[in-house]
Amino acid sequence: MDSSPPRTPFMWRFMLVLARIVVAPLCRLRVSGTVPAELRGRPLILAANHVSPFDPIVMTAACHKARIAPRILATGGIFDAPIAGAAMRAAGHIRVDRNTAHVADALPAAAQALRDGAMVLVYPEGRIGLDPWMWPERGKTGVARMAALAGAPVLPVAQWGAHAVLPYETPKRLLPSLLRALRRRPVVHVRFGDAPVDLTGVTGTAGAQAMQATRLIMDGIHDTLAALRPGEMETPHHIDRTRPPDLSRVRPRRPAGNPISRP
């Protein structure tokens, strides 16, 4: 039986290159860290924070730079668009119909992709985060459940600065935002974590384990992000004033660099 990872569809390879072309005039992309060699070519979940509508394009460009091609869990609305939807399906990405009866369908689809040897990228927050200080929010448990179903490790990924290219309100005032980005070319960072999140100590029922694992995954993303914003630990240098703050999903924060405590 062939255990090699699935072949990357041509459309996804094209989109990876296209993202680098799109990103170049709009920002200065800086990619740090990498996916360790021992995690390549095997099931792996990349769990990233979400700060801007520009994130998926930035992350695609960063993946091309890192020489990886994960399948992405993306909102169903993109799949319904005439051109983008066809491209997403041809690229092999996975649809997530949030706030519908079909939202649970994405979990077994992603777990099967992982069991088939794919790398999968997901935003555990399930939306652009609305933490007032732009730290990761409390995550949804889908990523932890996906990891448990497929037996796949979770590598945290952090991105920072894309909100200076496209603000939360996009597509409203899209043209002024693009013109401003073309003029300023802000620095946008993507950092791949140093190691997978250690989930070996979670205990209890399946639900309790998912909640504990989710907290650890979000802690891992938080620590990876902290390395990208050392002078912005409280208030970001660039403030997206179109972003409505929401305190309902704010996570307790600890000083950066403190070890992750078990729940």
Rank of each mutant, 00 (worst) to 15 (best):
residue 219 D to K: 01
residue 69 A to F: 04
residue 189 H to C: 08
residue 132 P to K: 05
residue 129 G to H: 10
residue 99 N to A: 14
residue 99 N to G: 10
residue 230 P to G: 10
residue 59 M to A: 10
residue 117 G to K: 02
residue 21 I to Y: 08
residue 217 I to F: 00
residue 11 M to C: 10
residue 263 P to C: 05
residue 221 I to Y: 00
residue 106 A to H: 00
residue 95 R to I: 01
residue 144 A to M: 07
residue 203 T to I: 07
residue 42 R to P: 06
residue 89 R to Q: 11
residue 224 T to W: 02
residue 247 L to M: 14
residue 81 A to P: 00
residue 147 A to H: 05
residue 222 H to Y: 14
residue 90 A to M: 14
residue 134 M to I: 10
residue 194 D to M: 09
residue 241 R to N: 12
residue 20 R to F: 02
residue 259 P to S: 11
residue 205 T to C: 01
residue 18 L to A: 13
residue 56 P to C: 09
residue 244 P to F: 06
residue 103 V to L: 03
residue 247 L to V: 06
residue 116 D to E: 15
residue 115 R to G: 04
residue 177 S to H: 09
residue 174 L to T: 09
residue 149 L to F: 01
residue 8 T to P: 01
residue 44 L to E: 10
residue 71 R to M: 09
residue 261 S to A: 15
residue 154 V to E: 02
residue 139 G to Y: 09
residue 232 E to M: 11
residue 184 R to H: 15
residue 40 R to Y: 06
residue 75 T to Q: 15
residue 35 V to W: 06
residue 197 V to G: 01
residue 7 R to A: 13
residue 226 A to P: 03
residue 127 R to P: 02
residue 18 L to V: 09
residue 71 R to I: 03
residue 116 D to M: 03
residue 117 G to H: 08
residue 189 H to Y: 09
residue 41 G to M: 06
residue 101 A to F: 11
residue 41 G to L: 04
residue 26 L to S: 04
residue 147 A to T: 07
residue 25 P to K: 13
residue 168 Y to P: 02
residue 221 I to G: 01
residue 19 A to L: 05
residue 10 F to I: 12
residue 157 V to I: 12
residue 36 P to V: 10
residue 250 V to T: 11
residue 27 C to Q: 06
residue 220 G to R: 00
residue 181 A to P: 02
residue 261 S to R: 14
residue 77 G to L: 06
residue 100 T to C: 08
residue 211 M to Y: 01
residue 248 S to K: 12
residue 52 S to W: 08
residue 118 A to P: 00
residue 251 R to Q: 12
residue 20 R to K: 13
residue 175 L to W: 15
residue 110 A to K: 03
residue 117 G to Q: 07
residue 222 H to P: 00
residue 257 G to Y: 01
residue 67 R to T: 11
